[in-house]
Amino acid sequence: MSDSLSDALAALEAEVRAACAAARDDNELRQTAARYLGVSGTLTRLLKRIPELPGPERKPFGQRVNAAKVAAEACVAQAHARLRAEARERELARPAADVTLPGRRRKVGRRHPIQRVLEEVVDTFVGLGFDVAEGPEAELSVNNFDRLGFPADHPAMDMHDSFFVADLDAAARVLLRTHTSTVQVREMLSHPPPVRVVAPGAVYRRDDDVTHSPMFFQLEGLLVDEGVTLSQLRGVLEAFLGRLLGEGVKTRFRASYFPFVEPGAELDVGCLLCRGEDASCRVCKGTGWLEILGCGMVDPVVFSNVGYDPERYTGFAFGMGIDRLAMLRYRVPDIRLLYENDPRFLASV
């Protein structure tokens, strides 16, 4: 192999090195590579000349050109890596993304605030071993009043101003239930004791103002067994409140009246907002207490009406207004907002 060829190849190698180093982008580098290594590139053409050479020259020539080719390929690869690194540098150095542009949101829907509270309350009682029972909203008057021991023509009815369903075929009077206590009756008529159920649902009364809605939600609870006591009523409700509102919630147990329980009571909760320390508190009206639970021992009359033996069984019942709990939790100023379903309201809670 002549020195001149060797020199020429060395020069070519240097030329490739310089061209690769000079390439400013992928395109230039591609052209450079094609110029030397492409189908008709300089090095490719040299390799193609090998068969034309005399036998003894072929091997050293081939070796030398191949070495030049490998060196050239390495140069291109190196340049390619350099360009990539430079491009990455440039990319990383670009102005930051505008994170104030809105994200493309996949909205998850929200349960109605009443349902959120209702589910939480029900699930808490389920955790305390209660079944869930339900009944119709359009109900027979006898289940809503008579079987629960409501005295006819008694002022206790004033709290239950009912909507009646008009229908000439109706043999019995049908109304929209005024409380979920109807489910108590249905549950006891259809199951022998012991019973341990909560009954959530919509109820209806002819009221309409800032704190009364003609439809609202209640949860009724009933536990009947042998030896059930008023003390246990308090214990179960305190366990419930502890789970719902956190341990250490203060309670006050006081006498009250509901037609289907005797003794009747209410369990008040220490004000969640002012903790009884603000005489001008709007939530508790300065009393320090929130009245959220009506309850009592099932009146023996109710047991007789559903065929339970009042001598053998005792039980307790309790009820709470879910709307009131929702209003407390979400600070809703007017109960009617809950049923208007204004999207702006729903989005705020």
Partner: peptide, 22 residues
């Protein structure tokens, strides 16, 4: 009433299938 202590009734298992619809 407020002097009554809270106690818990003995536990019983829930009725099978009783929570279906809810």
């Amino acid at each position: 009433f407020d002097t009554l202590p809270g106690t818990l009734p003995p536990t019983r298992p829930a009725r099978a299938g009783s929570r279906g619809d809810y």
